[in-house]
Amino acid sequence: SEFQINEQVLASWSDSRFYPAKVTAVNKDGTYTVKFYDGVVQTVKHIHVKA
């Protein structure tokens, strides 16, 4: 599913667990740039983002 900029989502971290994050960019290659609550910004594949 498509997510929008500033949408609150759950994004997987390197430990494969999902954490609350905010979408900061929707990228043309189908990835999302997300910002976790601790301030870390990461680009993740769409399969690693869920509502």
Rank of each mutant, 00 (worst) to 15 (best):
L10S: 06
K50W: 12
V23H: 00
W13Q: 09
F18R: 01
N27L: 06
K22R: 11
K22M: 14
Y37M: 12
V41M: 07
V9P: 02
G30T: 03
H48M: 11
V40R: 13
V26Q: 06
I5V: 14
V9F: 03
S16D: 13
E2N: 11
F3Q: 02
T43C: 07
T24S: 05
V44A: 01
T43P: 00
R17H: 14
V40D: 11
K22L: 15
Y37T: 09
G30V: 03
Q42G: 11
Q42L: 12
K28C: 10
T31S: 12
K22I: 15
K50T: 09
V49S: 07
S12K: 15
K22W: 13
K22C: 10
K50R: 11
D38G: 10
H46I: 11
Q4G: 11
N27C: 07
V49R: 11
D29Q: 01
K22N: 07
P20C: 08
V9A: 02
T31D: 02
K22F: 13
S16N: 14
V40P: 08
T33I: 07
L10E: 06
Y32A: 01
S16I: 07
V26I: 13
L10P: 01
Y19T: 05
S1Y: 12
F36T: 03
S12N: 04
S16T: 11
H46D: 12
K50I: 14
D38H: 11
N27F: 08
I5N: 04
Y32F: 08
F18W: 15
D15W: 03
Q42M: 14
E7G: 06
Y19C: 12
H46G: 14
S12V: 13
Y32T: 01
G30E: 03
Q8N: 14
S14A: 13
S12F: 15
N27R: 02
A25F: 08
A25G: 10
K35R: 11
S1C: 14
F18K: 01
Y37K: 07
S1V: 10
T24E: 10
F36G: 02
Q42W: 12
S1A: 13
T43E: 07
P20Q: 08
T31E: 02
T24I: 15
N6G: 15
W13F: 12
K28Q: 13
P20V: 09
E7L: 06
S12Y: 14
Q8V: 12
G39R: 04
V49Q: 06
A25H: 10
F3K: 01
Q42I: 15
Y32W: 05
A51R: 11
V26C: 09
Q8P: 09
T31Y: 05
D29I: 03
K50V: 11
L10F: 11
A25R: 08
Y37F: 13
I5Q: 05
F3N: 03
P20H: 06
D38L: 07
Q8F: 13
N6T: 02
A25Q: 09
V44Y: 03
V9Y: 01
G39A: 04
R17A: 11
W13M: 14
S12E: 14
F3H: 05
V26W: 05
G39M: 04
R17I: 14
K35M: 14
A21E: 03
W13K: 15
F36L: 04
A11T: 04
T24P: 00
P20E: 06
H48L: 07
S1T: 12
Y19H: 08
K35A: 12
V40W: 12
V49F: 05
T31R: 02
K28Y: 08
D15P: 06
S14T: 13
V26A: 06
V40Q: 14
V40S: 15
I47R: 09
V41I: 13
V49A: 06
A21N: 04
S1F: 13
I5H: 04
S14Y: 10
Y37A: 12
E7P: 01
V41S: 10
Y19M: 10
I5L: 10
H46T: 12
Q42D: 06
E2G: 14
K50L: 15
V41L: 08
Y32G: 02
Q4D: 07
F18G: 00
S16G: 15
V49D: 06
S1D: 10
W13G: 11
V49W: 01
G30R: 04
L10N: 03
H48C: 15
E7T: 09
K50S: 11
F36I: 02
Y37D: 11
Q8L: 15
D15K: 02
D38V: 04
V44D: 02
N27A: 04
I47C: 14
D15R: 00
S1P: 14
K45Q: 12
N27E: 05
D29H: 02
N6I: 05
V44T: 02
I5C: 07
K45D: 10
D29K: 03
G30H: 04
Q4V: 09
V34W: 00
V41Y: 10
V44C: 06
Q42T: 10
F3S: 02
V26R: 04
V49P: 06
K22S: 11
D38Y: 07
N27K: 01
A25W: 06
I47A: 13
V9H: 04
V9T: 02
G39L: 03
E2L: 13
T33W: 05
R17L: 13
I5G: 00
H48Y: 13
S1W: 07
A21H: 03
A11Q: 02
G39F: 04
V41A: 05
S14C: 14
P20D: 06
A11M: 04
I47H: 15
Q8M: 14
D38M: 07
Q42A: 15
V9Q: 02
T33F: 03
N6C: 13
V44F: 04
V23M: 01
N6A: 08
W13N: 10
T31F: 04
G30N: 06
D38E: 06
Q4N: 09
Q4H: 12
Q4L: 08
T31I: 02
V44L: 10
I5T: 05
F3T: 03
E7I: 12
E2T: 13
K45H: 11
Y32S: 00
D29F: 02
S14N: 14
L10A: 02
K28I: 11
H48I: 07
E7W: 08
A21P: 02
K45C: 12
F18I: 03
F18A: 00
Q4Y: 09
K50P: 07
V34M: 00
K50N: 07
T33V: 12
K22D: 05
G30A: 01
V49Y: 05
F36Q: 01
V23Y: 00
W13C: 10
S16W: 07
K45L: 14
V49C: 07
K28G: 13
F36E: 00
F3E: 03
S1G: 12
P20S: 03
T33M: 06
S12G: 10
F36K: 00
V40E: 10
Y37W: 14
D15F: 01
Y19W: 10
T33L: 08
D15A: 01
L10H: 05
H48A: 09
K22G: 03
Y19K: 08
F18L: 08
Q8K: 10
Y19V: 09
V26T: 02
Q8I: 15
K28M: 10
S14Q: 13
V23A: 01
A51M: 08
P20T: 06
G39P: 04
H48T: 07
G39K: 04
T31V: 01
E7A: 09
T43K: 11
E7K: 03
D38Q: 05
S16H: 13
D38P: 03
E7H: 04
